[in-house]
Structures are given as structure tokens and as C-alpha cells.
Design a protein around this nucleic acid. Structure first.
Lengths: 140, 140
DNA sequence: CTGCATCCCTATGGATACTG
DNA sequence: CAGTATCCATAGGGATGCAG
């Protein structure tokens, strides 16, 4: 389900600008939401970062992503695998051995995420201050 | 609560690379999670897109962001305001008039989000195919 | 080792009546 | 108009026992 079939105009200067001009918020907003949903949730990012260094096994992930439960690790891995972000390789040995690897598009995704990290770093202070100020006004 | 106080090293090439080198997943992962959390949730992006065109009033937002409830609109606006992404201006008139405007850092944020939109567009097909294939294997 | 099944609890979000 | 307060449904996620 959810195959939206979006036809985006060839040259985009900036999503906001485009949205403002086209009077079509939903297109950009939905595209964005799709990818955000993919990396939101408490664990997806942690898992991808842990897997970025190369093939990693289930139990190693469990240790690398601190605080994750076995259930959530499995669930998140399945979702990532379903979206084609993680490849799961089973070695038919005993005891079982399974390796998880990032796919190329996952690495590409993370490159894109880098600009968000950059934004967060640039504005960390401003955000912290905004919060303090907001809370101060709310508290009294 | 949650004032992490993160000290990030000055020059970052790529989050993955850094994570792989520093053996410190948590820093990048957390920074990323912070900003993701800020724009995740069902409504934040829709509201920001709607507000991108200029000052917008509460009721206008309610109409612009289709499907949102009054409660969630209020809550999401408060969060965005607290993080310094939206400025709330009250005009002391009757009936009340309140305008919401994006702050500069919110516009900057959206510029950064653009690369995610781009990624989603580049890989929409690949993801759809991955899902079909995954579901096919799971179904039988 | 890997990971599914179960139980349970909490946070998120929907609907809507009420107020300054 | 611009919210707040309240009630309720559901999904996300924690803990953990069991199995291939």
C-alpha cells in the first residue's frame, strides 16, 4: 500500500520554496514523512550506525545498541530489511550465524542524514536557550 | 530534563566515518536522534510546511494541515515553539488573534531536510521493490 | 546463537465539550 | 478566535520464556 506515485518537477530549489509556490504542501511533506518514519523510532539509527562499520551479528548488535531489547532489535531489523536498508545473511552452521550489513542505499541515506547532524550541531545552543527561556516563562 | 550537553569534535567528515573511527556511536546517533525526534511525530513537518509561506493563524493551520485535531495542533505548536522553531505572536485584540511564524533556524532546518527528500525520491522505487520482494518471501 | 510469542504498561494521539 | 481539559483507543515498546 502507499505507492503515492509522485511526480515532482525536475528542478527543486528548496522544498519550502516549492511548497510555497505550488500550493501543494502534501507532496513534499509526505515524501519527507516517509523517510522520517523510516529512521524514526527509538532504534533504527542506532542499529544503522552500529552496522556501518561492516557486517555485524545479532548478539553484537544487542551489545552495541545499548538498552535495546531482543524484541525491538528483531523488529527494527526486520523493518530495515524490508525497506532494503539492511541485508541479512544466514550462514547454515551450528550454532546459527547471521550477519547484518548496510545496503548501498542505506549508506547513501546516511550521507543525507549528515546535513541534519550538521544542523543540530550548528543550532544546539540556540535550541537549548530557546527551551530554557520557554520553560522559564511557563514555570512562573 | 534531558539537557545532554554534548561536546562534539570540531571537524566532521561524515557521521558514519566518524562513528567508525571514534568507536563512539552514541554521540552521532544521539545528535541525529535529537533532530529526528524534533521533526518526527505525525504533524510537525506539516505544520512547518504550512507556516513556511509566512505568518499563519491558528485556525488557518487547522485547515491547512488536513486531519489534525485541535489538541494535536496546540501540542505540536508548543513543542516547536519551545525548541525555537516557531515564533508565536499574540495580538491583544478581540476576538483574539495569534500568528505563527517560522524562525530562521527552522528555515535552515528545512534546507537540511531537503537532502532527505532528495534521497527519498532517488530511492522510492528501490524501496518499493524491496518491500514487494520481502513480503513475497514472507507470505508463502 | 538467533529470534519468535506472550504479557503488560505507557506514551501518543483522536474526539469533543468547555472557556476567556 | 484560540485555545484548555477530559476521556478514551491504540500502537510502541519493555521483559522474558521458549524453540530451532
Amino acid at each position: 500500500m502507499s505507492q503515492r506515485n509522485i511526480d515532482v518537477s525536475p528542478q527543486v530549489e528548496s522544498p519550502w520554496v516549492q511548497a510555497a509556490r505550488d500550493d501543494d504542501h502534501s507532496v513534499e511533506a509526505c515524501t519527507l514523512m516517509d523517510v522520517i518514519d523510516r529512521v524514526s523510532g527509538k532504534w533504527a539509527i542506532g542499529i544503522m550506525v552500529a552496522a556501518a562499520r561492516g557486517p555485524i551479528r545479532f548478539t553484537e548488535l544487542e551489545r552495541a545498541v545499548s538498552g535495546i531489547s531482543r524484541r525491538m532489535l528483531t523488529l527494527t531489523l526486520r523493518n530495515l530489511e524490508r525497506d532494503g536498508l539492511i541485508r541479512r545473511t544466514v550462514y547454515p552452521v551450528v550454532p546459527p550465524k547471521v550477519e547484518y550489513t548496510l545496503t548501498p542505499i542505506a549508506e547513501d541515506l546516511y550521507e543525507s542524514l549528515a546535513s541534519l547532524t550538521s544542523w543540530a550541531e550548528r543550532n544546539r545552543v540556540a535550541i537549548a536557550e530557546a527551551r530554557v527561556e520557554y520553560d522559564a516563562r511557563a514555570d512562573e
